[in-house]
């Protein structure tokens, strides 16, 4: 089938697949690119991030790597402005999603967070049933019950959880294994049809097999979503990322800096910065 026709048919069809993993050409979502310029983050007097400028290309996976405490998570939480949950936080610089100014005081942050989803290091499903977990944010968005049930099935299929849980949708999400919980959290984020997905070490709390499944999912989500993934696992970054940004804590205590950014192969095979070279080979960090 011609990809262009398949796209038009799926747009007009009533029960639209939310995501396009089975057929990338049928993707109806427009992944957005994000750009940050001179972004600095402070928590009280402590500076966590120092003048970072980089671009997250639409539909690609960007991995953020570097030792702990150099501002990778802070950068991530600027992209959906979750950073402002910390009362003492202060952000300077600019952040855009396509042409949309993320940092502007007039920004509707509820709408922003629905477009920029986030997955946390530790799976954090609510202590509710599996289906309720996915429905809750949809209720907040005013989506009707019938449509919600359709979405629950769609997103659970998208993350490969449907066959595992279809008979126990009303059981507590806390009865799932860690890996299943993390995929449920991804499904919950996908249900809002985000354009960007932020992932803060999504596999680090999981066993290798569960981590492998989440990683596989990340590869499937690519091209339908813009993905920004913080990871400490070099091999994983190499497997999933199109672009890589390397962070390092500055010597003057001004927080983390972006020391190098570029295509994945370049970072791992021909790094330009000597710290990058040392870090990716495991000699430093």
């Amino acid at each position: 089938m011609n990809p262009i026709t398949s796209q038009t048919t799926s747009v007009s069809s009533p029960s639209l697949p939310l995501t396009c993993m089975s057929n990338p050409a049928a993707c109806i979502l427009q992944p957005a690119s994000m750009t940050v310029t001179d972004l600095s983050v402070f928590y009280g007097d402590h500076q966590a991030l120092d003048k970072v400028s980089m671009e997250f290309s639409a539909g690609l996976v960007t991995a953020l790597i570097g030792p702990s405490g150099c501002g990778k998570t802070s950068l991530l939480t600027c992209l959906n402005r979750l950073v402002q949950m910390v009362p003492t936080s202060r952000v300077t610089g600019q952040c855009f999603m396509d042409e949309f100014d993320v940092m502007s005081p007039t920004t509707d942050i509820i709408s922003l967070r629905r477009q920029v989803g986030m997955i946390f290091q530790k799976p954090n499903p609510f202590a509710l049933s599996i289906s309720r977990n996915i429905e809750l944010p949809l209720i907040s968005q005013g989506i009707k019950r019938h449509r919600r049930h359709e979405i629950v099935e769609e997103v659970l299929r998208d993350v490969g959880l449907w066959d595992e849980v279809k008979d126990r949708l009303h059981r507590s999400a806390l009865t799932l294994s860690g890996g299943q919980q993390q995929r449920l959290c991804i499904a919950r984020a996908l249900a809002l049809k985000p354009r960007v997905l932020l992932m803060d070490e999504p596999c680090s709390a999981l066993d290798p097999i569960a981590a492998g499944r989440v990683e596989e999912l990340i590869r499937k989500l690519r091209s339908c979503y813009t993905l920004v993934v913080v990871t400490h696992n070099m091999a994983q970054a190499q497997r999933i990322a199109d672009h890589v940004g390397v962070f390092w804590a500055s010597d003057e205590g001004r927080g983390g800096q972006l020391i190098e950014t570029g295509p994945c192969e370049q970072i791992f095979e021909q790094p330009r910065h000597k710290l990058t070279a040392a870090y990716v080979q495991g000699r430093q960090g």
């Binding site: 959906n80 979750l82 949950m85 509820i110 709408s111 922003l112 967070r113 629905r114 989803g117 986030m118 946390f120 530790k122 954090n124 499903p125 609510f126 202590a127 809750l136 944010p137 907040s140 968005q141 959290c185 919950r188 984020a189 809002l192």
Partner: peptide, 11 residues
Amino acid sequence: EYIRASVALGM
């Protein structure tokens, strides 16, 4: 983490 999750989900 529940609060953070729900805030991040645009509730």
